[in-house]
């Protein structure tokens, strides 16, 4: 019944029983031997990770899992998605229940160190925002003194919220709830004046859960930096390298103008960097321990970063988010891949 602390207690047990889940190379080898990637994703966050009407998982976070599976197995379907609550996510990764956590998770110092995680490059640069009912007539977060604020437990959101109100000498009443569905419910029923989360998630909740999306506005202030990044556990550098370079590959392909539609044509490109990237000239796979054609496979089956973004959270999606800081560095954004050589 008490789902998350049963999970926590269970983790305690698995941590106690597992005799060394995280030795060097073991994750990589274990995944290969198993034949599919176990990927921890969100229970349901439209645009990032949610099942579509046919029960197929879709979303930006989900596509990162698929990309990793494609790189390793040449097949985007060799993934098992394990939906995790905010509470369960780190223990699920630490205890080896998932190989990879791709679940709108903010990269922070504590998580990187004390939680024993390694973060791959951010796949979405976000910031925390506030959503209010339009009829409240609020224009700025600085007008929120004394408000009741709904927030989900176990998030960076909870901490930024306290910091922001403290630094602006404002007070608030927090209503901290465990399950996102109940948080949303409390907000839309009027229990709270404000809902706070990463802005992309507010947009997702507004699009998918609001009784009438037009009745709600997201205030202009962004009060934090939330680089959302895939994470793996400490102890297997080969696996970490793979995940990291898969993310880079989607960026590099976008920068070179290679999409899932043009990747076949690009195979005959005279450009040596493209030839190396797509495995026409050998090199990019060997040092990672996988097939040289891995980038080709990833782009062909999942797409480059721009495609992944637009289809899940950008203009082709209900969320309609701008690229903003998530544009490539060549377009004034933060997305940047080191050279593939």
């Amino acid at each position: 019944m008490r789902r998350e602390w049963v999970a926590a207690a269970w983790t305690v047990l698995t941590l106690a029983m597992a005799s060394g889940v995280a030795q060097a190379g073991t994750t990589f080898d274990a995944v290969k031997a198993r034949g599919f990637v176990q990927c921890g994703t969100n229970v349901g966050l439209a645009g990032f990770s949610s099942p579509d009407s046919n029960g197929r998982w879709t979303g930006l976070d989900v596509d990162i899992c698929r990309a990793v599976a494609t790189a390793l197995f040449g097949d985007a379907e060799k993934v098992k998605f394990i939906p995790l609550s905010t509470q369960q996510r780190f223990t699920a990764l630490q205890s080896g229940e998932v190989d990879l956590l791709s679940r709108n998770t903010t990269w922070t110092l504590t998580r990187d160190t004390e939680n024993g995680l390694h973060f791959a490059p951010a796949t979405f640069y976000d910031g925390q925002g506030f959503m209010v009912a339009k009829k409240a007539g609020i224009k700025s977060a600085l007008e929120l003194d004394g408000a009741s604020i709904c927030v989900q437990t176990g998030t960076t959101t909870e901490l930024n919220l306290s910091d922001y109100f403290r630094s602006h000498k404002m007070t608030f009443q927090s209503v901290v709830i465990e399950a996102l569905s109940e948080v949303n419910h409390a907000f839309f029923s009027g229990r709270c004046d404000v809902l706070t989360s990463d802005t992309s998630q507010l947009a997702s909740i507004r699009a998918a859960d609001a009784p009438n999306p037009d009745d709600y506005v997201i205030l202009p202030e962004l009060i934090s930096k939330e680089p959302l990044a895939p994470a793996v556990r400490h102890g297997d550098d080969q696996w970490f390298d793979l995940v990291r370079w898969v993310v880079f590959a989607t960026l590099e392909a976008e920068e070179r103008g290679i999409t899932s539609k043009t990747v076949d044509a690009a195979l005959t490109s005279p450009d040596p960097t493209v030839q190396r990237l797509l495995g026409v000239q050998p090199g990019v796979g060997h040092s990672l321990g996988i097939d040289d054609k891995w980038v080709y496979n990833v782009i062909k089956q999942v797409g480059n970063y721009g495609e992944i973004f637009q289809r899940n959270v950008g203009k082709e999606s209900p969320l309609k988010l701008d690229r903003g800081v998530n544009a490539l560095w060549t377009q004034g954004g933060l997305m940047y891949s080191p050279p593939f050589r």
Partner: peptide
């Protein structure tokens, strides 16, 4: 107390 400790577990990562 469980709610507060849940948050604590999450922020510190110290489940045990």
């Amino acid at each position: 107390v469980v709610s507060v400790l849940d948050t604590t577990i999450n922020q510190t990562g110290q489940a045990i």
